[in-house]
Structures are given as structure tokens and as C-alpha cells.
């Protein structure tokens, strides 16, 4: 289980998170929806300290972290128990697909070379990228890069995987392949996932919990059916209306 309590974050005088609290049960998929600038990406990035929160407490399984006063060791511990899939993939440009997945296993988890190879290939197979394992990121399409990015995150067996708008940078025809993989791992791997996305369909089909954020606060939380088809809050309704009109 991962639980965030009272997250605050400001950039200069702009308050981006105004006391956000969420709870994600182990093995469940939580989708965070909301307009641009609502703070959803910042929230996600504050979980693994890429954008350290000014205030807040995080409970990861049974460990408690004070986000504003975490030591270097604690930050490393959180990062080693989480993984992130980025909007711009951020595969290591100097490594092949296989090396990208293997790197964390060997360097961070101190796994043996052979063991790491087997594991990396297992996850590349899972995302359908095994036939491209020796390709460098520039030789892959956006969708393929993102699938490798997902394999890299999965292979680490993190307690939670953070997806930061994983399909926003993709050409429309490539979005599907990445969403398919995400659905597949949600089902097969039983991973705890927090997904920031604009894909309402994905939220409806896959999420166990949907959180709607706006203006740095959580507006509404609930089951996807309730939030998406039957939102209680006016702001949620307005936001979703734009999608159903398309």
C-alpha cells in the first residue's frame, strides 16, 4: 500500500499542491485525471523525490517518510522501491533496449549478469520488444521506446510504478500499443500502478480507483464508473464533458 498525506508543493509563489492526500492499495491501479496545471504530474514526481514536496508524509507499505526532511538514504530507498515511466520515455540513449532494462538490475539491485539478462529478456518479451533488444532508443519508434520504458520499470519489481502521461508524446496510432501493454501488466503482474493520463477509456477499463484533481487539490475520488459516468462534482463533470464531446 502507498499512502500520501497532505502533500504541499510550491514553485516560487505558485502553489501547485495544496494538501493532497491519496491512498493506493497494493496491486491496484489508480488513475489520476485532471486538466493541465492541476498538479497531477507534480504529485507523481514528488513521490520519488524528482520534485521534492515542501511538506507531506508518505507511507510505503509499513515505512513512513517525511517528504520534506528525507535523508539521502531514505530518498534512495524510496527510489529503489518505486519506478517511473516517463512522458518522453527517457530511455538511456547510450544503451540498447536490453541494456536499458538490465542496468538497474545489475547496478542497483546487484543481480548477477546472467540472472539479470534472463530477467530483462523476460520483461522485454512481455512488452513485445524482444526482437528489438539490441536496438538503441533512436532506432525505435515512440511506442516501442515506451514499451521498453515499461519493461525497465517492471523488471525492478517495484512496490509501485508511476506512469507520468505515458502516451501523451505518442502519435495517435501508437497510443493503442502502449495502452494494451499497460492493461496487460495491470492484469498479469498485479503491480501497484499510479497512472497520470488523459486516456479516459483506459481509466474506465483498467482503473480500480480514479482520482480527479484540479487546482492542486483532489476534487473527487472513487470507482471509475462513479467518477466517469456519474461525477458528483461540477468541476469533474465539466472536465469530462470535453472528452465525451469528441
Amino acid at each position: 500500500m502507498i499512502k500520501l498525506e497532505n502533500f504541499h508543493k510550491s514553485f516560487g509563489s505558485t502553489e501547485v499542491l495544496k494538501g493532497v492526500s491519496i491512498e493506493v492499495p497494493t496491486g491496484s491501479v489508480t488513475v489520476i485525471l485532471g486538466p493541465s496545471g492541476s498538479g497531477k504530474t507534480t504529485l507523481l514526481r514528488s513521490i520519488n523525490f524528482l520534485e521534492p514536496a515542501d511538506k507531506g508524509t508518505m507511507i510505503l507499505d509499513d515505512k513512513v517518510f517525511d517528504m520534506a526532511a528525507a535523508s539521502k538514504k531514505e530518498i534512495l530507498e524510496v527510489r529503489r522501491n518505486t519506478a517511473m515511466v516517463f512522458q518522453n520515455y527517457n530511455l538511456f540513449a547510450n544503451m540498447t533496449a536490453l541494456e536499458n532494462v538490465k542496468e538497474g538490475l545489475v547496478l542497483v539491485q546487484k543481480m548477477g549478469r546472467y540472472e539479470a539478462l534472463i530477467k530483462a529478456e523476460y520483461y522485454l518479451e512481455k512488452v513485445g520488444m524482444i526482437n528489438r533488444e539490441h536496438f538503441y532508443p533512436v532506432q525505435l519508434s515512440g511506442g516501442q521506446q515506451q514499451r521498453v520504458g515499461i519493461a525497465r520499470a517492471l523488471a525492478l519489481n517495484p512496490k509501485v510504478i508511476l506512469f507520468d502521461e505515458p502516451t501523451s508524446a505518442l502519435d495517435p496510432e501508437l497510443v493503442g500499443e502502449v495502452l494494451e501493454i499497460m492493461k496487460k501488466i495491470a492484469k498479469e503482474e498485479n503491480s501497484t500502478m499510479i497512472v497520470v493520463t488523459h486516456e479516459i477509456g483506459f481509466a474506465r477499463d483498467v482503473a480500480d480507483q480514479v482520482i480527479f484533481m484540479e487546482g492542486g487539490v483532489v476534487v473527487e475520488t472513487g470507482e471509475p464508473r462513479d467518477i466517469i459516468e456519474n461525477p458528483k462534482e461540477e468541476r469533474t463533470r465539466k472536465f469530462l464533458a470535453r472528452f465525451s464531446n469528441r
Partner: peptide, 18 residues
């Protein structure tokens, strides 16, 4: 070097040195 490279490295728990 793209900032995302450093972020990705940190996100998988690499130390700054690595």
C-alpha cells in the same frame, strides 16, 4: 544531455555517481 536522462537514472535508484 537531456535532463530526462538524469531523472530516469535517479528514478531507478541509481546514486548520483552511477
Amino acid at each position: 544531455v537531456d535532463k530526462g536522462q538524469m531523472e530516469a537514472a535517479k528514478s531507478i535508484g541509481m546514486t548520483g555517481y552511477s
